[in-house]
Amino acid sequence: MIEAAALGRAFKVRGRVVHAVRDLSFRIEAGEFVGCLGPNGAGKSTTIKMLTGILSPTSGRVTVAGLDPTRRRTALARRIGVVFGQRTTLWWDLPLRDSFELIRLLYKVDRKPFRERLDELTTLLDMAGFLTTPVRQLSLGQRMRGDLAAALLHDPAVLVLDEPTIGLDIVSKAGVRDFLRRRNAEYGTTVLLTTHDLGDVERLCRRVLLIDHGRLAFDGTVGELLATVPGETSIEDVVAHLYRNGASPTGEPR
């Protein structure tokens, strides 16, 4: 469903070339639930932006749902749903319901399936109480549920989430996690999320990608991740160890 081959993105910053992502290769099959970990500035968001067509790669190739995100951005947009935890993709000044209606227009979703999906999402995400509230007045938890619904109204095959649980209280967090797990299990939606919250990884992700300094430092199951650092038993300690000491379990030099 997602295939990256030697994917890289360099930025010029004051005359110097900075490689935000380099030589990243991985493959995610349909129906997988994958978590992407890495310290701040490791290149997670840059990777997400290349997968969604926001940024064009400077090297390598990537296909999502069989499409090149840069060249076929609008076609891809119909097949994927994207959520940014740090900022909303909804319209700040419009009531949530109007935002959803705009999304219906942008994605050209027919009224009937739209109605059905919105009703279902309203129930699952418990949004009935704030559908008519302007987005700027929503709490973070409400806004995140609105964003999740907005990303799914066109019934995408892939859901890409950049820090979807950031800043949420434990109840909201549990709600979002539960929703994502069910979406993946019941609809077979492929999910890729980035996070700093290891609870997300433990409770949701069958597979972990760890990005460090723009490179793929680990790719495997949570169990395999735990096994990379002998003596550490909690995922938190293992990840902290890897962030501190450079995550290169294969022993290759960085």
Partner: peptide, 10 residues
Amino acid sequence: GTLDAMLIRP
């Protein structure tokens, strides 16, 4: 960052 939100629309 609202341009990001526009770029994910079809």
